[in-house]
Computed example of a mutant assay.
Amino acid sequence: MFKHTLTGFVRSVILLAALFVALPAAAADRTLLILGDSLSAGYGVPTETAWVQLLRQRLVDRGLEHWDVVNASISGETTDGGARRLPDLLEKHRPDIVMVELGGNDGLRGFPPDVIRANLTTMITESQKAGARVVLVGMQIPPNYGQRYTEAFAGLYPSLSDRYGTALVPFFLADIYNHDELMQNDGIHPTEAGQPRLLENVWPVLAPLLEASETARR
């Protein structure tokens, strides 16, 4: 009799263990999709110190571990590449928020502003059609590209944000690009020390959207 009772107990323990394994460690029921280039892919810095990983840790620290941060950033990505990849990402992840951090590589390659605008518009509108809130991350390029081009490029982000009602990070590299100790030798990518500042440039814009999404889903 004792043997049968013990056998039943062991089976119950195994069943309970299987149920716990089947459940996720943290029920991530909201998704933030980051569609960016090398600045968000963590080029030249350890993965655990890149700004996106710092964001994940901040969410956990603030009791928002149910947010899944999907980093779909690729070094060298352009707005054209992002626009091509986005539909599959939207279908797969069904994000609540989409952060579009693209355009820097387009500007450095001298792509026409109208082409960049069209691609950014596509990403914004497709994300909104999928029910996601959009954060547009603004960029600027060096003045050696000429005043006319640099101003046209920088103006893309606020004008698109105004037109489509997105949240806007005015300049991703604000208070970073002008500090040599925070920039890698290429003058393009922030160092490990610059990663927390990237997060601080994003957080004041992102935090209200996280809060609004929390409220809407209650």
Rank of each mutant, 00 (worst) to 15 (best):
P196F: 07
D114N: 15
G187I: 12
I124R: 08
I141S: 05
R84I: 10
R109A: 14
V98A: 01
D180T: 06
D80H: 11
G76V: 02
A130P: 03
R163Q: 15
A193P: 04
I124S: 02
D186W: 11
P143S: 05
A83S: 15
G165I: 13
E181N: 14
D114L: 13
I116T: 15
V169M: 07
P113H: 04
D106A: 02
E181T: 05
P158Y: 14
G146V: 02
T191N: 07
A152R: 15
L136A: 14
D186A: 09
S161A: 15
K92E: 12
S127N: 08
H93P: 02
G107M: 02
F111V: 00
G138I: 12
L120S: 02
G194C: 13
F171D: 03
R148C: 00
F111Y: 04
I97K: 03
S127W: 04
D80Q: 14
P196T: 05
T150L: 09
Q128L: 03
G76S: 10
Q195W: 13
V135D: 04
V115F: 00
A154W: 00
I97N: 04
G131F: 00
S161L: 11
R109C: 04
A154V: 01
P158L: 10
E151A: 12
P142M: 12
M99F: 04
M183R: 09
P95F: 05
A193N: 13
I141Q: 02
P196Q: 06
P158H: 14
S75G: 15
P196E: 03
K129W: 01
E126V: 00
H93D: 04
R117H: 04
T122K: 15
L108F: 08
G107K: 05
R109H: 13
N105K: 13
D68G: 03
D162Q: 14
G103D: 08
M99C: 13
D162K: 15
I74F: 11
E101G: 05
D68Y: 09
V100G: 10
P113G: 04
M123H: 11
T166V: 07
V115G: 01
G146Q: 04
A154N: 03
R148W: 00
N185C: 00
L173V: 05
W67D: 06
V98Q: 03
Y149S: 09
L102M: 12
P170E: 02
T166W: 07
T191S: 13
D80P: 01
Y177S: 12
D162V: 06
V100H: 10
L168D: 01
Q140G: 07
G107L: 06
G131S: 05
A167D: 04
L173D: 00
N119P: 02
W67M: 09
